[in-house]
């Protein structure tokens, strides 16, 4: 990642959505289709969206993870039975950028959703594809360079990640 020196450098900007899954699907939809739906709801033409599939066997490579401003985690496949303790550790220790949005997708009943919500009170829990799309759009339209506030937000996020990566 390279630092944005000026606010104007932010335009155009590409955000990556980190997808952590073993099946590439969620709520019976392909993640690529869900991302396409998210993309369609992004306003303006200054923000590009690409999904990034990170191998769950390479979770120690945190440098790659933190470059994504939205983390989408399939709870049933990644966290339910503590399948990937390192991922749990990242979430517990909030080892993701402050400006990132972590969305945990729970494919299950309301009792399961409530349980996950109480386990991760500081994260967003989506229990349907519609919620996942809406939450992602909420975040991405906020950090959208079409507004000055959005540009500032992106720059702040970029600075935070660049500092963490040691590039500034």
């Amino acid at each position: 990642m390279q630092p944005y020196k000026k606010l104007e450098d932010v335009v155009p900007h590409e955000e990556n959505i980190l997808i952590l899954t073993t099946s590439d699907t969620c709520f019976n939809y392909d993640f690529s289709d869900i991302v396409e739906e998210i993309r369609e709801g992004i306003r303006g033409d200054k923000l590009l969206i690409e999904e990034y599939y990170h191998s769950l066997s390479d979770l120690s490579n945190r440098d790659k993870l933190i470059q994504n401003s939205v983390w989408v985690i399939h709870w049933n496949e990644c966290l339910k039975d503590d399948q990937y303790p390192q991922l749990g550790f990242y979430l517990e220790t909030r080892s993701y950028p402050n400006e990132a949005e972590v969305i945990i997708c729970v494919d299950g009943g309301s009792a399961t959703v409530s349980k996950v919500e109480s386990e991760y009170p500081h994260l967003t829990v989506a229990s349907s594809k519609e919620q996942l799309v809406a939450y992602s759009r909420g975040h991405l339209n906020t950090a959208n360079p079409i507004t000055k506030g959005g540009r500032k937000k992106i720059k702040r996020w970029n600075e935070e990640v660049c500092e963490d990566l040691g590039v500034i």
Partner: peptide, 16 residues
């Protein structure tokens, strides 16, 4: 979130 997106695009004039 849809209304929010439209509002951001048409009049998101906030800076902070």
């Amino acid at each position: 979130t849809d209304v929010y997106g439209d509002a951001i695009a048409s009049s998101g004039d906030f800076e902070d």
